[in-house]
């Protein structure tokens, strides 16, 4: 039989061993749970997060946006050269588009009684010389799939390039448009 001191030493040795074993078990459990959490997160990211934001974006585009354009290119031609700036913020694009659209809508409503000053004939500007000597801004709305709608702003004349529809805009509309375009 062992003496009490020997037994005591043995007891404390066992205690240390069991504590070590416990610590090992705990860290093993921790590692397993961390790796499980990581796997679960990766799974979520791969199978759900990829799909969900797309849906949300699509919904946003359809529900909240005025137009589907993603970029507005503003080219300033001053006769000598040109400089270009871009707007990519969708909220700003929406504002610009709705401002320009409202100008055209108002003009259409007044089209029943057009005045010479507001509703210009296409032939008045669209001459070869006019294109060459054009000084003003070309505002181009671009979509992801490269669909473009372009307008020109020369003085107070706004022109939709597609159908050469020209509109004379008043000072307040011009100021507002220039502010929006940052020109």
């Amino acid at each position: 039989m062992r003496s009490l001191d020997e037994c005591k030493a043995e007891i404390f040795r066992r205690v240390e061993d069991r504590k070590k074993e416990r610590r090992k078990k705990r860290s093993r459990m921790l590692m397993v749970s961390i790796s499980l959490a990581i796997c679960f997160t990766v799974f979520l990211v791969m199978f759900f997060m990829d799909i969900m934001p797309d849906r949300k974006d699509k919904n946003k585009n359809h529900e909240n946006r005025v137009c589907s354009y993603t970029t507005v290119k503003i080219e300033h031609k001053n006769g000598v050269g040109s400089d270009m700036q871009r707007i990519t913020d969708t909220a700003d694009i929406d504002k610009i588009f709705s401002a320009i659209s409202s100008i055209y809508v108002n003009v259409k409503e007044e089209a029943a009684t057009p005045t010479k000053s507001d509703f210009l004939s296409p032939d008045s500007v669209d001459t070869p010389a006019g294109i060459i000597e054009f000084t003003g801004f070309i505002i181009t709305f671009c979509e992801d799939d490269k669909t473009e709608v372009a307008f020109t702003l020369e003085g107070d004349i706004l022109c939709r390039v597609n159908d050469n529809f020209k509109v004379k805009i008043d000072d307040s509309q011009l100021t507002m448009l220039k502010n929006m375009l940052g020109i």
Binding site: C7, E10, I11, F12, R14, V15, R18, K19, R22
Partner: peptide, 10 residues
């Protein structure tokens, strides 16, 4: 008995 005592400590 030693196991029982170590239980008491742990």
């Amino acid at each position: 008995a030693m196991d029982a005592f170590s239980d008491l400590i742990i």
